[in-house]
Computed example of a mutant assay.
Amino acid sequence: MPIQLVCSSNGEPREADGVVDLIAAHRHAVAKVESLGKRLMQAEEAEAALIGPRLDAVMADEALVRRQAAMAPVADVCELKMKAAYFERLMNDGWCDVDADDLHELLRSFVDFQI
């Protein structure tokens, strides 16, 4: 698996340490989508035309990080439980759309786990 980069709290890219960092990166991406979505809903027509393409890009980034989190191998039972709980919340709380390919990768990462 190639090296995956995530952003630290100051916005600097760094190598992902695993499931925990990828989940944190995804939460950050979801927050960006929500923030821009709120701005778009309140924007005038001219500003909305500027925000729209940026929102599309941020949504694509969120989908990429979500897929990386789904694909990330789990190192132990704790990470497996954390990852399962996180994706359960995503699906139940409506934070974002979890598509079938994400679920497939998520389940594959669980099957590949060796006790």
Rank of each mutant, 00 (worst) to 15 (best):
K38G: 15
A25P: 00
A70L: 02
V19I: 13
A70W: 00
Q42T: 14
A57T: 13
E15K: 08
N92R: 13
L40Q: 06
R27K: 14
L5C: 07
Q42D: 14
V111Y: 10
F113L: 04
V77P: 04
A85V: 05
A63I: 04
R14Y: 10
D112C: 15
K38Y: 07
G18T: 03
C78D: 15
L40A: 12
K83P: 00
V33E: 00
P2I: 08
Q68M: 06
M91N: 07
G11F: 04
A46C: 14
L5N: 10
G11T: 04
E62D: 13
M71N: 03
M91G: 05
V20R: 05
Q114G: 08
V77D: 07
C96G: 11
K81N: 10
F113D: 01
A100H: 14
D101R: 06
H104R: 12
G52R: 14
R89N: 12
M82K: 11
K32S: 10
I3S: 11
M1R: 07
D112S: 15
E15T: 11
G52L: 13
L107D: 11
D112F: 14
A48P: 02
A84I: 02
L106H: 01
L106K: 01
C96I: 14
G52I: 06
M1W: 04
M71W: 03
D97M: 12
K32N: 10
S109I: 04
E15D: 10
A24N: 12
A46Q: 15
V6I: 11
L64E: 04
P2N: 13
D56Y: 07
A49T: 12
G18C: 09
C78L: 15
L80G: 01
V77M: 06
L64C: 07
G94V: 08
K81F: 11
H104D: 09
V33R: 00
V111N: 09
A84Q: 08
A75W: 04
R54M: 03
E62H: 03
A48L: 06
R89G: 04
A31I: 06
V74R: 01
A84H: 04
A70C: 11
Q68D: 12
D93Q: 14
Q4A: 04
D56P: 02
H28Q: 12
F110L: 08
P2A: 15
A16L: 06
E12W: 12
M82L: 15
P73Y: 04
D21L: 07
M41Q: 10
Q114A: 13
V6S: 00
D17C: 11
C96T: 15
K81M: 11
G94Q: 08
A46K: 15
E79T: 09
A63M: 05
E62Y: 00
R14M: 07
